[in-house]
Amino acid sequence: MSLADLGLDETAELAYRRCLREKTVTVAGLAESLHLDRAETAGIVRELVRLGLVRQADTQTFDALDPAIALENLIAVEIGRLREQVSRLDACRSRIRSLSEDFTATASRASRPEIQHIQGIDHIREKLDELSFFARTEIMGLQPGGPWTPETISAARPLDLRCLRRGVRMRTVVRAEILEDDRTRAYLLDLCAHGAEVRTAEGTDLERLILYDRSVFVAPIDVEDSKSGAVVVAQPGLVASMVSLFERVWRQATPVGAADTAARSGLSTTEKQVLAILCQADKDELGAREMGVSVRTFRKHVADLMLKLGAGNRFQTALLAKERGWI
Score class of each variant (00 low, 15 high):
3 L>S: 06
148 W>G: 03
299 R>D: 06
269 T>Q: 12
225 D>P: 00
58 D>H: 02
26 T>V: 02
30 L>V: 05
220 P>H: 10
165 R>F: 14
212 Y>T: 12
219 A>D: 02
74 L>D: 04
252 Q>Y: 12
19 C>Y: 03
112 R>S: 13
82 L>D: 08
155 A>S: 06
70 A>C: 05
37 D>F: 02
236 P>E: 01
119 Q>Y: 10
136 R>P: 03
86 V>C: 11
242 M>D: 09
149 T>A: 03
107 A>H: 04
84 E>C: 03
153 I>H: 02
190 D>K: 09
23 K>L: 14
285 E>H: 09
220 P>N: 06
110 A>F: 06
88 R>L: 13
261 T>R: 03
277 I>C: 09
267 L>M: 01
126 E>C: 05
324 R>I: 01
19 C>T: 06
56 Q>W: 04
96 I>M: 14
278 L>T: 01
70 A>I: 00
164 L>Q: 04
71 L>G: 03
147 P>Q: 00
105 A>Q: 11
50 R>C: 05
53 L>V: 09
248 R>L: 05
232 V>M: 06
134 F>M: 10
82 L>I: 13
176 A>T: 08
127 K>T: 15
155 A>F: 10
30 L>I: 07
8 L>A: 14
241 S>L: 13
209 L>D: 05
176 A>N: 06
7 G>F: 01
192 C>T: 15
83 R>N: 14
278 L>W: 00
85 Q>G: 11
242 M>L: 07
180 E>K: 06
318 A>L: 00
22 E>Q: 13
5 D>I: 04
170 M>L: 15
85 Q>W: 08
315 F>G: 06
140 M>W: 07
97 R>N: 05
150 P>W: 01
63 D>I: 08
235 Q>G: 07
221 I>G: 11
136 R>A: 13
300 K>R: 11
125 R>E: 15
255 P>D: 03
123 H>Q: 10
211 L>D: 05
156 A>Y: 02
67 P>N: 12
54 V>T: 07
277 I>K: 04
172 T>L: 13
228 S>K: 03
152 T>G: 07
121 I>S: 05
183 R>I: 01
179 L>T: 07
94 S>V: 11
44 I>K: 06
181 D>V: 02
272 K>S: 15
219 A>L: 01
260 D>G: 15
240 A>W: 07
211 L>W: 06
186 A>K: 05
36 L>R: 14
188 L>E: 01
286 L>Y: 11
94 S>Y: 14
276 A>N: 15
87 S>M: 14
39 A>D: 09
108 S>I: 01
117 H>D: 09
54 V>A: 04
11 T>R: 09
162 R>P: 02
23 K>H: 14
212 Y>F: 12
2 S>H: 07
92 C>K: 15
128 L>W: 04
158 P>N: 08
41 T>D: 05
229 G>I: 02
64 A>K: 00
261 T>V: 14
175 R>G: 12
31 A>M: 05
73 N>M: 14
325 G>T: 05
275 L>P: 01
249 V>N: 00
237 G>D: 15
307 L>H: 13
277 I>L: 14
133 F>A: 11
135 A>P: 10
3 L>C: 11
153 I>D: 00
16 Y>N: 11
46 R>A: 15
66 D>H: 03
244 S>N: 09
90 D>N: 13
43 G>D: 15
194 H>M: 04
62 F>V: 07
35 H>M: 12
217 F>L: 08
157 R>P: 00
39 A>Y: 11
